[in-house]
């Protein structure tokens, strides 16, 4: 495949990095939310919520920044996708806010009915967020109907097709796996024993959905595999992905939870890399009428803007990494409930 390191390609990669950062970080806290109803004791549920307590808000900033970067680097993609997926994204915003409300409200009153209702709200909205994001991703993989004016020509119901829903479910499974490993890292005692048992189940759930999605993709979405046919070396990413997943039970068995978590992060990165490799150099594939596809060239900002943004990113990213890592370092270790907890 042709591959030149121009500014457009660099921004394609950088937005991919932001998306991966978001999926890794908000992925585990959405996963924790999706698993929330599997514990019953109030204190255990509080530990689950507080395991993500200091960080979930910051994790969502990755979504804000990713959206901002997309707007900035590829305004046509931002405009087409956000207006095209209007109703789906409005629902996504609704559940994102609803989930935040649930986290804040849940522990404010001692009544059992109060806490149970907000627990359900928290968990269901976490699952729906993952599902909706997966559905959006699934539609991007398949391609969406675009016009010559770069505008979306489909409908909301058209977005809810079987393949997109399958990718949605795979996303939920992936985040559940990721979240359960995070919990094993952050909990102790009987609760840790319980969440460790979930890990195997979530891995099985994820592998089943992932394999099914892959089969569907190979059969029905052939354009995703073109680069892999022309450059078989790329297949290494898929192999690395399987190795990363296979490594998780091994590390859990050795009680090296952090390494298991890193494996899970690696798997998320590998999955998004496969996705990006399949798309490149398109960002939104027009299906039918591939000639209307939005590519990293016809949808991008000017070279000057991409250059200025790159300067900003090069100055800023070391700081972002430094303080993200230092914050996770400060809050390392097991969750303890304190008076400041949720």
């Amino acid at each position: 495949m042709e591959f030149t390191f121009d500014l457009n390609t660099i921004w394609f990669i950088l937005i991919g990095v932001l998306l991966a950062g978001y999926a890794i970080l908000d992925g585990f806290d959405l996963g924790v939310g999706s698993l929330h109803l599997f514990v019953n004791e109030d204190e255990d549920r509080r530990i689950l919520i507080n395991s993500i307590g200091p960080v979930w808000d910051g994790n969502e900033v990755w979504l804000v920044t990713g959206g901002g970067a997309l707007f900035a680097a590829f305004p046509h993609v931002y405009a087409t996708v956000f207006s095209g997926f209007y109703t789906a994204f409005m629902l996504l915003l609704f559940v994102l806010i609803f989930r935040a409300v649930a986290i804040e409200f849940r522990s404010k009153q001692p009544m059992a009915w109060w806490r149970k209702s907000w627990d359900i709200a928290f968990s269901v909205s976490s699952i729906l967020i993952a599902l909706l994001m997966g559905v959006a991703l699934g539609n991007i993989i398949q391609g969406i109907p675009l016009g010559a004016d770069k505008e979306f020509q489909g409908t909301f119901l058209g977005l809810l097709n079987p393949y997109a829903i399958l990718v949605g479910i795979t996303t939920v499974a992936l985040f559940m796996m990721h979240g359960s490993i995070y919990l094993a890292m952050k909990t102790e005692g009987h609760l840790q024993e319980r969440v460790t048992k979930w890990i195997n189940n979530t891995i099985i759930f994820f592998v089943i959905t992932y394999v099914t999605t892959t089969m569907f993709t190979l059969i029905y979405v052939p354009h995703m595999t073109e680069h892999f046919k022309s450059t078989p070396l790329l297949f290494i990413v898929a192999v690395l992905n399987m190795l990363a997943i296979a490594n998780i039970p091994r590390e859990i068995h050795l009680k090296k939870y952090f390494l298991a978590f890193l494996s899970s992060c690696a798997s998320i990165v590998a999955l998004l890399t496969l996705f990006a490799l399949g798309l490149f150099p398109d960002i939104v594939i027009s299906n039918p009428n591939p000639e209307y596809s939005l590519t990293i060239y016809n949808a991008a900002s000017s070279q000057k803007t991409l250059g200025i943004m790159l300067t900003i990113a090069i100055i800023g990213i070391p700081f972002v990494l430094a303080y993200t890592i230092s914050i996770y370092w400060v809050f390392r270790g097991k969750v303890k409930l304190t008076p400041m907890s949720y």
């Binding site: 200091p54 960080v55 808000d57 910051g58 900033v61 804000v64 920044t65 901002g68 970067a69 707007f71 900035a72 680097a73 590829f74 305004p75 046509h76 931002y78 405009a79 956000f82 770069k150 900002s301 000017s302 803007t305 991409l306 200025i308 943004m309 900003i312 990113a313 800023g316 990213i317 700081f319 972002v320 303080y323 993200t324 914050i327 400060v330 809050f331």
Partner: peptide, 28 residues
């Protein structure tokens, strides 16, 4: 968005990287 994307691009990138991350990170 299509009309202003190129102009707002750099401002938004700066906002995301210098402001949002700074604020939300240290907030914890």
């Amino acid at each position: 968005s299509r009309f202003v994307g190129d102009v707002f691009g750099s401002a938004l990138a700066a906002e995301g990287i210098f402001a949002f991350f700074l604020e939300s990170g240290f907030l914890a």
